[in-house]
Amino acid sequence: MKILIIEDEIELVRSIIGFVGSDNYMFNYAFNYSDAVDKIGLYEYDCALVDLMLPDGSGLDLVKKLKKIQPKCGIIIITAKNTLDDKLTGLDLGADDYITKPFHLAELNSRIKSVIRRRNFEGNSEIVLNEVFINTEKREVKVNKKIVELTRREFDILLFLISNKERVLTKESIVEHVWADDSNAFDNFDFVYTHIKNLRKKLIEKGSRDYINSVYGIGYKFSLK
């Protein structure tokens, strides 16, 4: 898998690469518009992260170029501007997703994975982790081929945890992903615990190992180790 990151803030690029991990992915990055144009022409990518505000040009033009030259590449727009117009224009131009700075790395990671899943496997929307089998298209979870009945929220939490497996996810990032963007204004996230407790119980009941660990008071981690 090859990912192109077009972003002028080098430290953010480093964080993204650090979090998403270079084990399964190859990264290329461009800090400005002209560099990005070169990189687009040179290699093929599975996913591109495009910052709309670049020092020497607009990311929207890059989205257009990418769509034309590499129609298979999934595009996620990154922007500091929370303007709806840019979002709409970006999505109209063919971007697959849109994320606003500052974002949770876990959120970006899960979106990258979702875009790659949708784009590259053409219908193959299955994730297999040992005895756990997830069909993201049908929103179906099986453990040892037995269907696990999950609520909408439980499924979303599970998919988010699995997309970020082996990483610590804060309760806040889970709430923002599963519930609503603005829900971090609440000061009580106790219900996340309830949902995760139920999710674990349902998975274990069907014979899955207990992969979901809680990390002190801060959050949760899906770990195969």
Binding site: E9, E11, L12, S15, I16, G18, F19, A80, K81, K101, P102, F103, H104, L105, A106, R167, V168, T170, S173, I218
Partner: peptide, 19 residues
Amino acid sequence: HEIQTPIAVVKSKLELMLQ
């Protein structure tokens, strides 16, 4: 607007550190 990027960087570094 300007403040968004540094916040994003700090946030990403703290989240990385958490890992």
